[in-house]
Simulated scan of single mutants.
Amino acid sequence: MSRVGKMPIAVPQGVDVKIAADQITIKGANGTLVRAAHPLVSVKQEGAALQVAPVNETTEANAMSGTVRALLANMVNGVSKGFEKKLSLVGVGFRAQAQGQKLNLQIGFSHPVVKEMPAGISVATPTPTEIIIKGADSQVVGQLAAEVRAFRPPEPYKGKGIRYVDERVVIKETKKK
């Protein structure tokens, strides 16, 4: 059996879990997340913990028990604490500005780039070269950060572009004559 799937998920105070036949709903301070239940995995609530187990002893059911457990743990973590990704802009004249649910980027193009944020996701710019994307759903936060980074990924010669705060960009040496 999956080692990850065997571990129980601790449900903190203020987080409400509802397990139906076809979906699992987790509600907390940061919002509500819903995920479809997988037919090869059974989920039970035992006190202040969730227990995930495979329905049968097939390899696929075993693998899915670990996957579902990790997804549910991320959902519980998201509605209680939330997830955030930090991006930084490196380059002369590169600026970001959050306006409600929109992110305006000036990143060296002839036009500003505007990215609309979906519901449940907030964006902040503490400084003009910093972007913080926050939300309850880990997958949506990570995907949005990747989409914003894809507008102008860091280039290898000067390092200009949008990068994650903890990302290390290897700078190449220019060609010598």
Rank of each mutant, 00 (worst) to 15 (best):
G135L: 11
F109V: 05
G66S: 11
I171V: 08
V4C: 04
V41F: 04
L33Y: 05
G108R: 12
T67G: 01
F83H: 10
K115I: 06
F94G: 09
L72F: 04
K158R: 14
V68N: 15
S80I: 14
S42T: 14
D16I: 10
A124F: 05
S80L: 11
D137F: 00
V11Y: 12
A146T: 03
Q51S: 09
G161Q: 07
K102Q: 14
I171D: 07
A70H: 00
R3F: 01
V41R: 03
K6T: 07
P112E: 08
N74F: 12
G28R: 01
R3T: 07
P54I: 08
K176V: 01
V165Y: 07
A98K: 04
V165W: 06
E173H: 04
R149C: 13
G47Y: 02
L105I: 14
H38V: 14
P54D: 13
G161H: 08
F151S: 05
I121S: 00
I132G: 01
P112S: 05
G120A: 00
F83S: 02
S2N: 09
Q143G: 06
K158D: 08
A98D: 05
I121C: 00
E167D: 06
M117C: 14
T25M: 13
H38N: 08
K81P: 07
V90H: 03
S122W: 01
I133W: 00
A61Y: 04
N62V: 04
A20Y: 13
E130S: 14
G66A: 12
L144H: 08
V114Y: 02
S65K: 12
A98V: 06
V41C: 06
D137C: 05
G108F: 10
R152S: 04
L89Q: 15
I133P: 02
G159S: 14
T129N: 09
V15M: 00
K160F: 11
K86L: 11
Y157T: 07
S42W: 06
S138M: 08
Q51L: 15
G78T: 12
A29C: 15
Y157V: 10
